[in-house]
Simulated scan of single mutants.
Amino acid sequence: MTVAASTSASLLLAVPAAVVGAACMGLASAAQERATKEVAVTRILDPGLLRGLVRRPLWLIGMVATGAGLALQLIALAFAPLLVVQPLLITSLIFAGVFSARLERRAPDAVMVVGSLTCVAGLASFLLLARPSGDADLLATTPQPFPLAIALILLTLLGLGVSVVAHGSVRVLGLAVATGVLYGMTAGLMKIVAVQARADLTEPFRNWALYLVCLVGPLGFLLSQNTFQQGRFLTPALAVITALDPLVGVGIGVWWMGETANTSPAALAGEAVAGAVIIVGIVLLSGRATKLSRQSGELLGKEPREQGAGRLGGDG
Rank of each mutant, 00 (worst) to 15 (best):
S6R: 14
L11M: 10
L12S: 04
P16N: 03
P16W: 10
A17C: 08
A17G: 04
L27P: 01
A28R: 09
E33P: 04
R34V: 13
A35Y: 00
L45E: 13
G48P: 00
L49V: 11
R51L: 15
L53D: 04
P57A: 03
L60W: 13
G62W: 11
T66E: 09
G67E: 10
G67F: 11
L70Y: 15
I75L: 11
I75M: 09
A80Q: 00
P87A: 08
P87I: 02
I90G: 07
I94P: 05
A96H: 01
G97M: 01
F99W: 04
V111P: 03
M112P: 01
V114Y: 04
G115Y: 02
S116I: 12
C119T: 02
V120W: 00
V120N: 00
L123Q: 15
A124W: 13
L127N: 09
L128R: 14
L129A: 05
R131A: 11
P132K: 03
D137E: 09
A140V: 08
P147M: 01
G159Y: 00
G159V: 01
V165L: 13
A166M: 02
A166Q: 00
H167V: 15
G168F: 10
V172A: 03
L173R: 07
L175E: 01
G180M: 08
A187T: 15
A187D: 13
I192S: 05
D200Y: 04
D200N: 12
V213C: 02
V216A: 05
T227K: 04
T227D: 02
R232M: 11
T235I: 15
L238M: 08
L238V: 02
V240F: 00
I241V: 10
A243K: 03
L247D: 05
I252G: 01
V254I: 13
W256D: 00
A269H: 14
G270R: 14
A272D: 10
V273Q: 10
A276W: 12
L284M: 15
L285R: 09
L285A: 13
S286N: 08
G287E: 06
A289L: 02
G297P: 09
E298R: 06
L299N: 09
G310A: 15
G310L: 14
G313S: 03
D315E: 14
